[in-house]
């Protein structure tokens, strides 16, 4: 069993959760993910790592409440235990030798972009972060991102905080003034797709982190397959980072919708249990 050490709402639908998992904490690196199961009859859900503390044996994930499992997780509290927690899975982001990087996080993607920026910054790399959100209420990790970057640029769709506009506008502006040697973009697939297009205009390499549906996360179910450079790749063992210039974002967006219907049914099933006094 894996105890929840800390749980905190970062905004009304985004939760930060730190779990005691010493074996995972010992090995995990930015870019890798874990699979957790909340309870005995729960599903296996992948989360890319948001932070870790090797000495304390703690691993932090940040999730948005979207389906039955994340809803259930958000109702668990410090001291409660997750039934399973396995990892690290996938490959760490290749950050060695990068001198000047721009890291882009879109919404919840900031949770995954943050440890990468932190690792780059610890390596002595100059890091600019562009963090995009829908509006002021949804901003997360501002202080943390500020602490690990040379410049933090926050954009919001409605201009209620930071600059009004899209992360791609900011990326184009920065790239036209500064020479970066790497772009990292993590967020909704559509955002990563447009970041890739912008990076291509400036001939910059770009790494994207994909989070497709998966069951086992260890290279068995094939649910996380993505088309990269015309070949079938598996996000769990070949990724989750890929060369953004090679990813077929359109087919990924289609596949991500596969279980949307079932997920909503799951939410409905879960909701109707709340407040019921009889089984």
């Amino acid at each position: 069993m894996f105890e929840i050490i800390e749980k905190k709402f970062l905004n009304p639908t985004v939760v930060k959760m730190t779990v005691n998992a010493p074996l995972v904490a010992k090995k995990i690196k930015p870019g890798q993910f874990i699979i957790l199961v909340a309870h005995e009859k729960g599903e296996r859900v992948p989360f890319t790592v948001a932070d870790f503390d090797r000495e304390k044996g703690h691993v932090t994930v940040i999730y948005q409440i979207v389906g039955a499992t994340t809803m259930l997780l958000s109702e668990m509290n410090e001291g409660d235990c997750l039934s399973d927690f396995a990892g690290p899975l996938g490959n760490p982001t290749k950050l060695e030798g990068v001198k000047r990087a721009v890291v882009i996080g879109g919404g919840l993607g900031c949770a995954i972009a943050y440890p990468q920026a932190k690792a780059l910054s610890n390596n002595g790399c100059e890091v600019d972060i562009i963090a995009g959100f829908k509006n002021r209420d949804l901003v997360i990790l501002e202080e943390e991102m500020k602490a690990v970057s040379n410049n933090l640029y926050i954009t919001t769709d409605d201009g209620s905080y930071g600059e009004k506009g899209l992360v791609t506008d900011k990326l184009r502006l920065l790239a036209s003034k500064k020479k970066y040697d790497l772009v990292i973009a993590i967020g909704p697939v559509i955002m990563m797709k447009f970041c890739e297009m912008a990076a291509r205009e400036f001939d910059l390499p770009i790494i994207v982190s994909l989070n497709p549906m998966m069951i086992d996360g260890t290279g068995m179910c094939g649910g996380c397959r993505v088309r990269v450079g015309g070949e079938v790749k598996f996000a769990c063992v070949d990724g989750p980072d890929f060369d953004g210039h090679l990813v077929d974002f359109d087919s990924l967006m289609k596949r991500n919708r596969s279980y949307a219907e079932e997920e909503q049914k799951g939410v409905a099933k879960h909701k109707c249990r709340i407040g019921r006094t009889e089984p």
């Binding site: 179910c221 094939g222 649910g223 079938v232 077929d248 087919s251 289609k254 596949r255």
Partner: peptide, 11 residues
């Protein structure tokens, strides 16, 4: 094979 409704037997 990328269509929704195509999956491996393993999955």
């Amino acid at each position: 094979e990328d269509l929704i409704g195509v999956l491996s037997a393993n999955e």
